[in-house]
């Protein structure tokens, strides 16, 4: 199953994550996002999380790893629309203190 869609518009690269973001699911996603960042050099990397059905520390590692790479390149990172469950993990591990979370207005 395809679990990543990349979209580049304006100066924002959006990485839409879908399905299971476990160790199995993040394996191919990581290099695809990194390659797109290096190639396109966006101002902002937006990681869209609304389609994530499951996440564990492997998914968090994916987010932190991209954040570190992006910071090295001077790219700003934001997280978009995590489910309450995903957000709980993000807050539990303190990632929300490093990366901005953007939510759809209800």
């Amino acid at each position: 199953m395809e679990n990543l869609i990349l979209d580049f518009s304006g100066d924002t690269l959006t990485a839409v994550l879908m399905g299971d973001m476990d160790h199995h699911g993040v394996a191919g996603v990581r290099t695809q996002i990194d390659d797109a960042m290096f190639r396109l050099m966006p101002k902002i990397l937006c990681i869209e999380l609304s389609g994530v059905e499951f996440m564990d520390s492997s998914g968090l590692g994916l987010i932190l790893g991209r954040y570190q790479k992006a910071s090295d390149l001077g790219i700003e990172v934001m997280l978009s629309n995590p489910s309450p469950r995903t957000e709980r993990l993000i807050v539990m591990t303190g990632i929300d203190k490093m990366i901005k979370i953007k939510k759809k207005e209800a």
């Binding site: 993040v26 990581r30 520390s57 492997s58 590692g61 932190l64 539990m92 591990t93």
Partner: peptide
């Protein structure tokens, strides 16, 4: 990209 949070979780 292992964040070291497995046991904590």
């Amino acid at each position: 990209d292992r964040c070291g949070m497995g046991f904590s979780i």
